[in-house]
């Protein structure tokens, strides 16, 4: 295959992945609406069996009135379908990534501009979800994950798309692989952690309201807090490795200074400090729970702001995919850079 064909394949695969993610989202919505029907049926069953109007439904309580089988089956069926579609979409997404790398001469990892970072980041978010959803009981998070991935994928195709090409010289280093893999992995995990924290806050606000539909499947607040913490504590060391170890080592090689307060570095540091604060908050009386969850969301916000936003606010970044023309000056020759 020629480079051009690989590039076409990549674009098509990304588009196809988008379509399948969309189908997965629809399947999740179908699951959701079947859940509501189950609720309604259950409600009906309950009011006919006893008049416990004031009782609050308990998520997994055994006292649930029996519901007719086909309805619950339908929920399970749509749930499985959604997961299957998500898996297929993720596989196609992966094809898109690989062929993107193959389309460059010489072949390379698909991480040299914002478009490529975004399609990689979204891939990892979906992949992590697929891998951990069962173990951590996160299947209820599916619609949010897919919605997020789909949105960002569209943003990247519409606004961030960039033609393929060889790596800029400064990126041409084994550290690229180590640094980016860890950064993208941590980003994916933190993103999912942000979602569970957001759901925590939403669920908290609903406290006392009946847990119907999708809410019935969301775990208890304590459990949510625990899951969020586990995700964050998984991501935090990886992030530390990415931005405070491999990043500086590589920066030292490429730009001669392991830490130069470049805007990307600053924001990676801010993200790190915010998540350190999150970990502290979880063990500080008065900050547990709600405030910690808010901090986790602040962390997610700084993370994605750094990923995409900072490129539009600051033009001094040395991170070449920020797309800035190499800064050249008539007074300060210091600003001439190689390879962006």
């Amino acid at each position: 295959m020629t480079d051009l064909q690989w590039a076409d394949l990549s674009n098509q695969a990304i588009a196809a992945a988008g379509v399948v993610y969309f189908l997965a989202l629809i399947a999740y919505f179908a699951e959701w609406s079947s859940l509501r029907q189950v609720d309604r049926a259950r409600e009906a069953a309950r009011s006919s069996s006893y008049a416990g109007a004031g009782s609050v439904a308990v998520a997994t309580g055994p006292e649930r009135p029996a519901v007719d089988e086909p309805r619950t089956d339908r929920v399970a069926m749509f749930g499985r379908l959604a997961l299957l579609l998500l898996g297929i979409a993720n596989a196609v997404h992966f094809v898109g990534l690989v062929s993107r790398g193959m389309s460059a001469d010489p072949n390379r990892v698909p991480w040299s501009n914002m478009y490529e970072f975004t399609i990689s980041g979204t891939f990892v978010v979906a992949l992590i979800f697929l891998l951990v959803q069962r173990r951590w009981g996160l299947s209820w998070l599916g619609p949010i994950v897919v919605g997020f991935v789909l949105t960002l994928l569209m943003v990247s195709v519409i606004w961030l798309y960039d033609s393929t090409g060889p790596l800029p010289e400064a990126l041409n280093s084994p550290w690229l692989v180590i640094h980016v893999v860890s950064a993208v992995l941590a980003t994916g995990a933190f993103t999912i952690g942000g979602m569970t924290s957001a759901v925590y806050l939403l669920k908290r606000r609903r406290a006392g309201k009946p847990e119907t539909g999708i809410w019935a499947r969301v775990p208890s607040l304590d459990r949510l807090d625990l899951v969020s913490y586990r995700i964050h504590s998984f991501a935090f060391p990886i992030w530390t490795f990415a931005v405070l170890i491999t990043g500086p080592i590589w920066a030292h090689q490429a730009w001669s200074s392991y830490w130069s307060w470049d805007p990307k570095e600053v924001w990676a540091f801010i993200t790190w400090v915010v998540y350190a604060a999150y970990l502290h908050a979880r063990t500080t009386a008065g900050w547990k729970g709600r405030n910690a969850a808010i901090l986790a969301l602040v962390g997610t916000a700084t993370l994605w702001f750094n990923f995409i936003g900072i490129n539009y606010f600051s033009t001094t970044s040395q991170h070449s995919y920020a797309g800035a023309v190499p800064a050249i000056s008539t007074v300060a020759p210091a600003a001439t850079t190689i390879g962006g």
Binding site: W261, D262, V266, I270, V274, A277, I310, A327, A334, A335
Partner: peptide
């Protein structure tokens, strides 16, 4: 974290004196 923000938005003399 908060204090580090302005330095990323306002050009810094020691990072890029020209800017």
């Amino acid at each position: 974290a908060l204090a580090a923000v302005p330095g990323s938005l306002i050009p810094q003399e020691r990072v890029d004196s020209l800017k």
